[in-house]
Simulated assay, not measured.
Amino acid sequence: MGWQLEEYGSSHEGRAGAVLPDGSEPKPVYIDSGSGANAHSTSEWWAYDGTLGAPKADRVRGSCSCGWRGTSLYPLDWSQVDDADPDDFDLSGPHRDWRLHLADVESRSVPLPVGLADLLERLEQQLSALADDAPLAALKAVAALERTTHRVGRVAAYAAEADEIPWSVVGKALGLAEEDARSRITHYSIRR
């Protein structure tokens, strides 16, 4: 099961990655679902238990969809893995390393001005309270906020495009993969 933060979505989806005894990362394995020619591929750490032709991992590490791989390796004791529920295995080390990776991504992204970050936090608190007390008023406020953010987003997207900022820079600034950064700019560029 992957780890994800809403802010980064699939650009930085983390997971525990299997590591083979020679230090390499195994290729995806195919799991026969029992329905004929259909086989499901996976790179989940628990699939590398040495059964059904899969290689046997002896360690795990944090990994991210952006290509980042943790340098700390954590022993994988298969006698401690519950076949019925491998998610019960302690993956706190790889998860902690992935969270540190996200902190690094955040530190390299464009910071929000402090006053704006505080305002956004207060706005969320007020809207959450309003959703509890007056849900229809909260929906009306959210709709107004969506219109505002889309107008401002369109202006910002046009300005970023006019400045011809390289997609690699845009991605780093937003903490996203280039493709996701392009998608975000396009989303705001489209008139509604």
Rank of each mutant, 00 (worst) to 15 (best):
D87E: 12
A39C: 01
R192Y: 13
L130K: 11
K56I: 12
Q4D: 09
R61T: 14
L145F: 11
G53F: 04
V29A: 03
K56P: 09
G14K: 14
K140N: 10
R61S: 12
R154G: 03
R182N: 11
A156E: 06
T186A: 15
G175S: 10
S189V: 00
S92P: 01
D133W: 05
T149S: 05
A156M: 14
L20V: 04
G17S: 10
R108K: 15
V81N: 07
V142Y: 12
P86Q: 10
H12S: 11
I190P: 00
P113Y: 07
P111Q: 15
C64T: 06
K27T: 04
P26H: 08
W3S: 06
P113L: 10
R147F: 02
A156C: 09
P21V: 02
S79M: 05
P135F: 14
R15Q: 07
G67C: 11
V19P: 01
I185L: 15
L5E: 11
A47E: 11
L91R: 15
E106D: 13
Y188T: 06
T148Y: 07
P135I: 11
A37H: 10
A181D: 04
E161P: 01
A16V: 00
L112K: 12
G62F: 08
N38W: 11
E7S: 10
G153S: 10
A173I: 01
V110Y: 06
E124F: 00
A144N: 12
Q80P: 00
R15M: 07
R122W: 02
R182E: 15
C66S: 14
E121A: 11
D133V: 07
R154P: 01
R182G: 09
S107F: 03
D163Q: 14
A160M: 13
A160T: 15
T149E: 06
V114E: 06
P94H: 02
S11L: 08
I185M: 14
S72V: 15
S65N: 07
T148N: 03
S189D: 01
T71P: 01
L145I: 03
S107E: 07
E7D: 06
A134Y: 03
C64F: 08
I190T: 11
R59F: 06
S109I: 00
G23T: 01
W45P: 02
F89C: 01
D90E: 03
M1W: 05
L145V: 03
K56E: 15
R182M: 13
D87P: 00
R192A: 14
P86E: 10
A103Q: 11
A141G: 06
V170T: 14
L116D: 00
L52E: 14
S107G: 06
I185A: 11
G23K: 05
Y48F: 15
E6Q: 08
G175E: 08
E124H: 01
S189G: 09
A117N: 00
E146D: 08
D58L: 02
L145T: 02
W98S: 01
R61L: 12
E146F: 02
L100G: 01
K140Q: 13
Y188E: 06
L174R: 12
Y8T: 15
A162W: 05
R192C: 08
E146N: 08
L145G: 04
Q80F: 01
P166S: 12
T186R: 15
L136W: 12
P86D: 09
D132L: 09
H40T: 13
L112M: 14
M1C: 10
S109V: 00
E161S: 13
L130D: 04
G62Q: 10
L123T: 07
G53K: 06
I185Q: 12
S65D: 05
